[in-house]
Simulated scan of single mutants.
Amino acid sequence: MEQPELGKKILELRKANGLTQEELVARCNINVRTIQRIEAGEVTPRSHTVRSIFAALEIDLDQLQARAALPNPSKEKSQWLLMAFISGLIYFILAFWEAYMDYELSTSPSLSVSAWQYTMVKISILVCYSLFMLGFHQMGRIWENNWIKPASLLAIAGIVICIAADLYLFYNMDTDPLPLMAAQAILFGSIYMIFGFGLYRYKKEFGNMAIGAGIAVMITGLLFMSVVLALLGLLFLATSEILLLFVLYSAYSKLKP
Rank of each mutant, 00 (worst) to 15 (best):
V247Y: 04
F195H: 03
T175G: 08
T107D: 05
T44N: 12
S130R: 06
R201N: 12
L131Y: 02
K9S: 10
L248T: 03
Y118M: 04
I93H: 05
I194K: 11
R141H: 09
L6Y: 05
L178K: 13
Q21W: 12
F54N: 01
Q63Y: 08
S112W: 03
K77H: 15
L61M: 04
L235E: 06
K122Q: 15
Y192F: 13
M83N: 08
C162E: 10
L245P: 02
T175N: 09
N145D: 00
A99K: 07
P177Q: 03
F188T: 00
E23N: 06
L231Y: 09
K254Y: 07
V247H: 09
E22F: 07
L248E: 06
K15T: 10
I242K: 01
G88W: 07
N29K: 05
P71D: 09
W116Y: 03
G221F: 07
Y202G: 02
E241M: 06
V25G: 15
Y252L: 03
N146R: 00
I211Y: 11
G196N: 09
R51H: 14
F236Y: 01
E76R: 07
V25L: 15
P109A: 01
P179S: 11
I10F: 00
D60G: 07
M173T: 11
E76P: 09
L222G: 07
P150M: 04
A69R: 12
S74H: 13
Q65S: 14
A56I: 07
A164T: 11
G189P: 09
A164C: 10
F188M: 14
D174W: 08
I90G: 08
N208R: 11
T34G: 08
I161V: 13
S74K: 13
Y200W: 13
S47C: 06
A210D: 00
Y200S: 11
G41R: 05
N145E: 04
R67H: 14
A216T: 11
F85N: 00
Q63R: 12
Y171F: 15
M181H: 15
E5N: 05
